[in-house]
């Protein structure tokens, strides 16, 4: 029995444009399904907005308020935070949709693929660094690696540490999300796989309720990981737009 069998990519519709392979795999299909369903849901709950919100509109406002006040205003600040609401909410909702579609039996978890999460982490990395460059200029950009508050001789130690931490940030974002989703889904798979492994249905009495509990935990972790990714994005942006003195 192959434990990581459901994390293998299968090509469904091969598409090749020159040397670039953009085939439709089960990852792409799951991603489209997840994001499409979430988009439809968001469009339905936010259609025909009224000043006095109805019940479904309250959910949409709650979500937006959560991203706006809970993440952007807290981490970036009220002035600059408004500008970053679209980016942070896009990251949050995209990762949340992809985490949740993985819990549907038979679907692939897009966020358990290292390529997917590395791409997301690199998007955040380049956004942060380009913003830093545009906001603080050439001199200010290098000031983030060599803060003026430290004594001159300490720079020998501080600069390498700052550079390493800048490189480690996207790496930790990418590993955290990938490993969390991979671990949770593997545990559910292993628990249910015990039934097949021992070739008896009596295991199911214990395995199925446990798998249900793990599924609930996984639902919770999906939301938490999307939240952590988005709030770290906001934190990194906040560090850049409000430079240290």
């Amino acid at each position: 029995m192959e434990v990581l069998e459901h994390f293998y990519l299968e090509i469904i519709i091969p598409i090749h444009i020159g040397p670039v392979d953009i085939s439709i795999t089960n990852l792409t299909l799951s991603m489209f399904a997840g994001v499409g369903l979430f988009l439809i849901l968001l469009l339905v709950i936010s259609s025909k907005p009224r000043i006095i919100p109805r019940r479904r509109q309250v959910i949409a406002e709650l979500l937006l308020n959560f991203i706006k006040r809970g993440m952007c205003y807290n981490m970036i600040g009220t002035g600059e935070g408004d500008k970053w609401v679209p980016f942070v909410s896009a990251v949050f909702i995209f990762i949340l949709a992809n985490n949740l579609i993985g819990l549907v039996p038979g679907a692939y978890t897009p966020t358990s693929n290292p390529v997917f999460t590395l791409t997301m982490a690199l998007i955040v990395f380049f956004t942060v660094h380009i913003t830093n460059f545009k906001k603080n200029g050439f001199k200010g950009y290098f000031k983030t690696y060599a803060p003026s508050s430290v004594p001159k001789w300490m720079l020998v130690i501080v600069v390498p540490i700052e550079v390493i931490s800048a490189i480690a940030k996207p790496f930790s974002l990418f590993i955290r999300l990938m490993a969390n989703m991979l671990a949770g889904h593997t545990i559910i798979y292993v628990i249910l796989g015990l039934i097949i492994y021992f070739k008896t249905y009596f295991i199911a009495i214990a395995a199925v309720p446990f798998a249900v509990v793990m599924m609930m935990l996984e639902l919770f972790i999906s939301a938490i990981q999307a939240y952590v990714f988005a709030i770290l994005t906001a934190l990194y942006i906040g560090e850049v737009v409000n430079p240290r003195h």
């Binding site: 930790s172 590993i175 490993a179 991979l182 938490i224 952590v228």
Partner: peptide
């Protein structure tokens, strides 16, 4: 908790 948990997940990877 998410941060602390991530460390054990590095070990898992």
């Amino acid at each position: 908790i998410a941060f602390a948990e991530a460390i054990s997940l590095y070990a898992l990877v």
